[in-house]
Nucleic acid binder design. Structure first.
Lengths: 202, 202
DNA sequence: ACCTTTCTTCATCGCTGATGAAGTTCACGC
DNA sequence: GCGTGAACTTCATCAGCGATGAAGAAAGGT
């Protein structure tokens, strides 16, 4: 409590990068647990053991901190890669399995943060859309090559978004508490159908 | 500016219900336009022409105001009714058409408010889930009567949530700017398949 | 040794959601 | 008519928020 009395005056303690990292760690935890609006910069600073002003010193604004905190956690990209390496056959199951297993094990951190705790201004929604467009929709459409490829990829996005929201955000039953395999068995063929099945009969 | 000098002192002006209504109208508009975090109680009060304290007098907290503001706008229930009156045949198209047409014309008011501008605490998510459960999932499951009816209804919910989020919230192309008929033609059969098609082949 | 850069603290601003007291007007019993 | 209590309205004020700016202390180059 009263440990650092007179020596705890302004000055340089750490390398700066360390403080930055501590702030980021605290921010990630609090944003995930309490959402954007429920997390205060002061709380992040306290959790990180730094002065609140340091948060603004490093990240400018609360939204800047948020943007820095949700930088992709580098565990999703390889998973996405593994989806496409298998070709078009059975890709529906692979997509669903990758999505659900990643979200389940990671404590639904990345996407839940993006959707559930989005800041008032829609900047992060734009970020999310661009990421989805670039990493999923575009590659799916390229893989298909049919004239309606873009729309089919869009339909897959609808499946992924709907499943994510239903299972992790709004928690609609029985989707929320189904085992992974059941979701894969049910939604895998559906996604596959979106991609390779026939649509709009005459 | 200096219009109401001495007579604008505390006291009873209107019936109270009128003030309440004005606050609700202002709150609905501001929540829709600026989201939950971007809307201040003071702004709502100013828009309604009342003292900020009146908002708390009538609704207790900002979240209470929000909860009161998103009470169903009484234009969705009849639309939902029309879905079920036609029986199981072609119900997929009817569901999609009803959803999209309602959301398109109503300026995506009800659901966009619920998802885009949810308060930090997840109370409104619970409200939304209960509403969906009661009005859609339950009735669909009852209409089907099969053992896996609950899961099929859940899959329909995934379609509706995904389509809503993709078209109105995150604005994923080409879903966001497709005409109603294309969405009906594409997603209608998909929903129909969720309900009446075969799943999980041996 | 100097001086610059980098990190850190503190004081402070305007605004927010929320509370409590005091004031004004109305509806109703008498 | 006239209290009287309830409903409504205003004001002053609170703690906490995001954010800014100045100033102090350590590190590093020269």
């Amino acid at each position: 409590m009263a440990e650092h009395r007179s020596s705890a005056r302004p000055g340089r303690w750490r390398s700066g990068a360390e403080s930055k990292q501590r702030i980021l760690d605290a921010a990630r935890a609090l944003f995930r647990e309490q959402g954007y609006g429920g997390t205060t910069v002061r709380a992040v600073a306290a959790e990180a053991g730094v002065d609140p002003a340091m948060v603004f010193y490093f990240f400018g604004t609360k939204q800047g901190l948020f943007a820095a905190a949700i930088e992709m956690s580098a565990q999703l990209p390889p998973a996405i890669e593994s989806i496409f390496t298998g070709g078009l056959d059975g890709i529906g199951e692979r997509i669903i399995r990758t999505l659900v297993e990643n979200m389940d094990t990671s404590g639904r951190a990345p996407l839940a943060m993006l959707t559930r705790s989005a800041p008032p201004n829609d900047q992060s929604e734009t970020l999310l859309r661009e990421y989805i467009d670039r990493e999923i929709t575009g590659r799916l459409a390229a893989l298909l090559g049919t004239p309606d490829a873009a729309f089919r990829a869009g339909m897959v996005n609808v499946q992924l978004l709907g499943l994510t929201v239903a299972r992790y955000i709004v928690r609609i039953e029985p989707i929320a508490s189904s085992p992974v395999d059941e979701l894969v068995n049910r939604f895998g063929p559906l996604v596959q159908h979106c991609l390779t099945g026939q649509t709009t009969p005459p």
